[in-house]
């Protein structure tokens, strides 16, 4: 099951062996289980997570009705975490870093930093031209395809355009430390997104 976390930022720590490793700090929740969805009630298994608090006067009446139905205070962020099987949580349970105690590897999903409209050299690592010696070919994409046959550009041709701002999952990041005191998870390496953004964390599916 995946839970919500906030990306705090990066630093380094020393391991027991004295090696310096780069880490990303993730503040895990604390989010609350607001509701459980089951095949009978909702059509599929999912956990409804609430994160943070919202002022009652900022909530629309429709939302207020929903909060009343599931019996909780208004939250800042409400997200659903779908799962194949029934998750082992109960309504009202608080989810924090203690979930990851003893876990060695995690997967982290987040939205990558938006880069705006970028050329093919940055976006797809095309090589670009030689630049000098009168080549007049600097950072262009070269050929877009053949001529008379097919007389069009193939679908999926790598061209300039918007880069970043996509969902990405980084698999099997090593957990350096689960800091219960500060409710932080220290994972080795980087994680998608800028600081203070919301990410999903789950136990690694491919590595234990």
């Amino acid at each position: 099951m995946k839970v919500l976390a906030t990306k705090i930022g990066m630093t380094s720590v020393f391991t027991e062996k004295g090696l310096r490793v780069p880490v990303t700090l993730l503040q895990v929740g604390p989010s609350k289980v607001l509701d459980l969805k089951t095949p009978e009630k909702g059509g599929y298994h999912a956990v409804v997570l609430g994160f943070g608090a919202r002022k009652a006067k900022k909530v629309t009446k429709a939302q207020a009705g929903n909060y009343k139905k599931i019996g909780t205070e208004p939250v800042r962020i409400m997200r659903e975490a779908r799962s194949e099987e029934a998750p082992a949580v109960t309504v009202g349970q608080a989810l924090d870093v203690s979930l990851f105690e003893g876990v060695k590897f995690v997967d982290v999903t987040g939205v990558t930093i938006g880069k705006g409209f970028q050329g093919v050299v940055k976006k797809y690592r095309f090589r670009g031209g030689p630049g000098g010696h009168g080549s007049n070919f600097h950072r262009r994409l070269g050929s877009a395809g053949a001529n008379t046959d097919p007389a069009r550009v193939w679908k999926g041709k790598k061209m300039p355009g918007r880069m970043g701002g996509e969902n990405r999952t980084i698999l099997s990041l090593e957990v350096v430390k689960a800091d219960k005191e500060n409710n932080l998870l220290l994972v080795k390496g980087s994680v998608p997104g800028s600081r203070n953004t919301l990410v999903w964390v789950r136990k690694a599916v491919k590595r234990t």
Binding site: I8, G9, T11, V13, F14, L25, Q27, D179, N182, L184, L186, R195
Partner: peptide
């Protein structure tokens, strides 16, 4: 720098 980053670092300084 985030207060939390400083807290984590402090343990290793």
């Amino acid at each position: 720098m985030s207060v939390l980053i400083k807290k984590v670092e402090a343990a290793y300084l």
